[in-house]
Amino acid sequence: MDKNSAALYKKMQTEVEAYQNLQKACVKVVKQRALLESQLSENKCVLDELKLLGAENKVYKLFGPVMVKQDLDESRQNVGKRIDYISKELKNSNDSLETMERDMMKHRETMTKYQQQWQVAAAMK
């Protein structure tokens, strides 16, 4: 392998490593997104149930091993805030995933370019 081929091969390997690292990061973000979607769904169900309750109903929240009475409106607000927070985190995860996918495509294109150049250089040898 001459110097030019070796340099192209090294560049291609660098792109492959960057691509693989992005793949690993994507897997983590997809897992995080699945967890967030699950939490969002759960909290929406809780809010729907809280909306069915009237002022005469009692609401309790688990604090460690103890159930503590909580105001119904406060409970609704807390769950609503949690839904807002989870929704923002979910949007951030989706945005990160889109960015990673674009970066992966760039690396894939660059890998293909280097691979073609390397093959041409090897064929000319």
Rank of each mutant, 00 (worst) to 15 (best):
Q77P: 03
S93G: 11
Y9F: 11
A121N: 08
L62W: 10
A122N: 13
K61H: 07
Q119L: 05
R108G: 02
L36I: 02
N57P: 00
K125H: 15
E56P: 00
A6S: 15
A18R: 14
M12F: 09
K11A: 10
N78G: 08
Y114G: 05
A7L: 14
L47H: 02
M105S: 13
R76F: 01
V59W: 00
I86V: 14
E15F: 11
Q119I: 01
E74W: 02
E15M: 14
A122R: 10
K11G: 01
D84C: 11
Y114N: 09
V27S: 12
K81C: 10
M111W: 04
Q116P: 03
L62K: 14
I86C: 01
K31F: 09
Q32T: 13
N94E: 15
L47F: 01
E74M: 15
K81V: 02
Y85K: 12
Q117H: 04
T99W: 01
L97Q: 13
L47G: 00
H107K: 14
W118E: 08
S5F: 00
K113P: 00
E37G: 09
L52M: 14
A6M: 10
M67S: 07
A34V: 04
T112Y: 05
Q32C: 15
Q70D: 06
F63T: 13
Q32I: 11
